[in-house]
Structure formats: C-alpha cells, structure tokens
Amino acid sequence: MDEDMKALLERALGPFPDDCDLPLPPMGLSVEEERQQRLRDLAVAFRVFGKLGFSEGVAGHMTARDPEDPDLFWVNPFGMSFNQIRVSDLICVDHKGHVVHGRRPVNAAAFVIHAQVHEARPDAVAAAHTHSLYGKALSSLGIPLDPITQDACAFYNDHGRYDDYRGTVLAEEEGKNIAAAIGGHKAAILRNHGLITVGTTVSAAAWWFVTMERSCQAQMIAMAAGTPTLIDHDTATLTHSQIGSDLVGWFQFRPLWEQIVATQPDVFE
C-alpha cells in the first residue's frame, strides 16, 4: 500500500498491519476499465440511494464524468426508479444535453445542474443531488450544517449554501450559480431544494450525500430537543482533516457498496 494512502487512512481508521486484507480504490486502470468501474459504482450508488429512500418521483440525479472525454458524463435515465437501475440503463450525455449513448431522455434539471458543476470543477468525477427528506427540511431553514457530531465535521468549513431558489432548475445561469455556491467544497445546501455533493470518485460523492443527509437528520432532531452543543473550531478542524478526504469517503461507502453487490447482483447487467 502506498505510504501516503496508509497514513491518511490510519488517521481516520486507526493503525493496521501492512499485510492486512483491505479493499483499495482501483488504480492504474485503462480508460475502458476506468469507464466500467465508474459505471458500476454509479449503478450501485443509485441502488443504495433507492434503498435509503432518497428518491422523490422522477427527481434526483447522480453523474460520473467520462474518463476519456471530459465533456461527457453518465447519468440516470429520466423516470427510472433508483431501485432498478443497472449499468446498462445508464445514459451518456454531452454538455449540451444531447444523449450520445442510450435511448431514454435525460432529466433537464440534471443536465443544467450537473453540466455546470462538472464544468466549474474539473476535479469532480461525480456529483449527486436528490430531494432527500432531511436535506430538504434543513435547507428550508437557511442555516448551515453545524459541527454537532463527528460525522458532521466532514463538512466543517467544507460546504456552501445557495439561498436564491427560483423554481425547477432549467436555466443555465441557475446551474452556474449552484456550481458557484459549491465552490471548492465537497457539498452545498440549496435552500428550499436539498443537498448536492461532489467527489473525485463516484463512491466518495455518494458517501458525502449519505452522511450529509444523516447529519441533517441528526441536527433537526437535536434542534427539536433543545440547543445542540457545537464542537469547538480546533476539534472540528482536526476531525475534518481525519474523516473529510475523498479517500476516506470511498472507504466509508464500501460496506453499502458490498451489500448491494451481494444482494442485487443484477446491478452489473
């Protein structure tokens, strides 16, 4: 294992022996192998989102940038249940919203948001946005995600806010504004709309969405019960450095990934 990778992981997971059997993000793949890996991860992530109840009718989308052509990205077909998406169902679209692979249409809002996010963030391999319950609820309050738990510290000083909701996102300018709200962060809260996350891998982007949604839920519950105690700045900053990297996000998503692969093998069809 690469020493830098090992050091980063041990900060979050604790020490482990050099010969331990630990899954690692695939490295050194060919373009075609990388494409297939991203498609497999994307299909699995949709199944996870479906299992966790993040769907809301036809709303919600997740994208993965094509490893060969950065102007193309893979996305879920419009109107298909997250619970049924397979690798073969994913469609590929360009930054003009034209479907270049697949026979189903793309969600227009998905194109507007994700195209601008991918353009603004060349480092972002993947982006995730759905209308999950607690993300929507917290977004209506116009407040940030506070460092009240260890998990929430992954977003400490690392999420933006977009406070100018103007209806369903169909205008390019709106997409640009959302991308600007994310900035260099891993996520943003879109007021009266929900959450959006990005990552250098599909699994990282998916995990940030999962744990951000749960952190929103924890904050809402804590606020309903009383006044949450915030983790102090230095501790929150330290915790962010331990658990806030995309590599750690990839590992955090792995148990969910393996559950889907074991119980729903058709996801790779």
Rank of each mutant, 00 (worst) to 15 (best):
F73G: 05
Y134I: 00
P144K: 07
E3N: 14
P26W: 13
Q84N: 15
L52H: 06
A127D: 10
E32G: 00
E33D: 06
A181M: 07
W208F: 05
S139I: 12
Y162I: 01
C92W: 11
A43P: 15
Y165L: 11
G199M: 09
L141M: 11
D2S: 10
E269K: 05
L247A: 03
Q150C: 09
R103A: 06
G28Q: 09
T149R: 13
L195Y: 14
H114T: 14
L230T: 02
D158V: 02
H131V: 08
A224M: 07
T263I: 06
D94E: 06
V117D: 10
P147I: 11
R103Y: 15
D146E: 15
K96I: 01
Q116W: 07
F111V: 01
R35V: 00
V112C: 01
A218L: 13
T201C: 04
W208V: 01
A128W: 12
K96W: 08
M5K: 10
E172S: 10
V117H: 09
D246Q: 10
W257K: 05
N177M: 13
I189E: 12
L195I: 13
P70L: 02
E269D: 15
G249P: 11
I91R: 02
I196R: 08
L42S: 00
S55W: 02
G135F: 15
D66K: 05
V112E: 11
V87A: 06
G183A: 08
D4H: 08
D71K: 02
P25L: 14
L42G: 00
R104C: 05
L90W: 14
H159K: 04
N107C: 03
K176C: 07
T149Y: 14
V100R: 15
Q259F: 12
G60V: 06
T263M: 12
F73N: 07
V267S: 09
V248G: 01
L190V: 04
L22P: 09
A109W: 09
D66I: 03
T211N: 11
G199S: 10
L170W: 06
H98A: 01
H118A: 04
P105M: 07
W74Q: 01
A180K: 11
P17F: 08
F49E: 13
G79C: 08
I221S: 05
C216V: 09
R47I: 11
A171W: 12
D123L: 07
T211R: 13
A12R: 03
K136H: 11
Q252K: 13
Y156G: 05
L52E: 12
H185Y: 05
L29D: 07
R191P: 06
E33F: 02
A137W: 15
V267W: 15
Y134D: 12
